[in-house]
Simulated scan of single mutants.
Amino acid sequence: MAGSTPGHTFRVMLRMEIRPGMAGDFERVWREVGDSVTSHPANLGQWLSRGAEEEDIYYIVSDWVDERQFREFETSDRHLRHREKLHPYRSGGSMTTMHVVAHLDGAGASR
Results as ranks from 00 to 15, higher is better:
56 D>W: 04
78 R>F: 00
80 L>Y: 11
13 M>D: 05
38 T>E: 05
67 E>R: 12
89 Y>V: 08
88 P>I: 14
78 R>I: 00
62 S>D: 06
14 L>R: 13
78 R>M: 04
34 G>Q: 08
29 V>W: 01
76 S>H: 10
61 V>P: 00
65 V>W: 01
95 M>W: 04
58 Y>K: 06
11 R>L: 15
6 P>D: 12
107 A>F: 03
103 H>K: 02
45 G>Q: 03
40 H>R: 03
5 T>E: 12
106 G>V: 11
92 G>R: 08
32 E>Q: 13
53 E>D: 11
18 I>Q: 01
83 R>K: 14
30 W>N: 12
82 H>K: 03
8 H>Y: 15
69 Q>E: 15
96 T>Q: 11
76 S>P: 06
76 S>K: 10
111 R>C: 09
26 F>E: 07
11 R>K: 15
67 E>H: 07
107 A>M: 06
92 G>C: 10
54 E>M: 12
94 S>R: 04
66 D>I: 07
12 V>H: 00
11 R>N: 12
88 P>Q: 12
36 S>H: 02
59 Y>S: 03
66 D>K: 06
93 G>D: 02
66 D>P: 03
2 A>V: 08
24 G>W: 04
37 V>C: 02
44 L>R: 01
107 A>N: 08
90 R>P: 02
28 R>E: 14
82 H>M: 05
82 H>A: 04
10 F>A: 05
34 G>K: 01
105 D>R: 04
23 A>W: 01
75 T>L: 06
103 H>C: 02
106 G>N: 07
101 V>F: 08
15 R>A: 11
45 G>P: 04
19 R>I: 08
48 L>Q: 01
90 R>M: 14
5 T>G: 09
86 L>P: 05
57 I>N: 05
32 E>K: 11
94 S>Q: 05
12 V>K: 00
63 D>A: 09
83 R>E: 14
98 M>F: 09
20 P>D: 13
108 G>A: 13
6 P>F: 11
22 M>R: 15
55 E>S: 12
17 E>F: 05
9 T>F: 06
83 R>F: 13
18 I>V: 15
62 S>N: 07
108 G>I: 13
12 V>T: 13
7 G>H: 10
78 R>P: 00
70 F>M: 09
90 R>F: 15
72 E>Q: 12
78 R>V: 02
111 R>T: 14
7 G>C: 11
12 V>S: 03
15 R>N: 10
21 G>D: 14
88 P>S: 15
6 P>N: 14
105 D>A: 10
36 S>V: 06
75 T>D: 05
99 H>V: 15
100 V>F: 02
7 G>Q: 09
86 L>N: 07
97 T>H: 05
9 T>G: 06
39 S>W: 00
35 D>R: 08
60 I>P: 02
58 Y>D: 05
74 E>Q: 10
38 T>W: 07
84 E>M: 11
83 R>G: 13
97 T>S: 11
69 Q>A: 10
68 R>P: 01
42 A>N: 02
89 Y>M: 09
27 E>M: 12
31 R>T: 06
29 V>H: 03
7 G>A: 13
94 S>A: 13
109 A>C: 07
43 N>V: 04
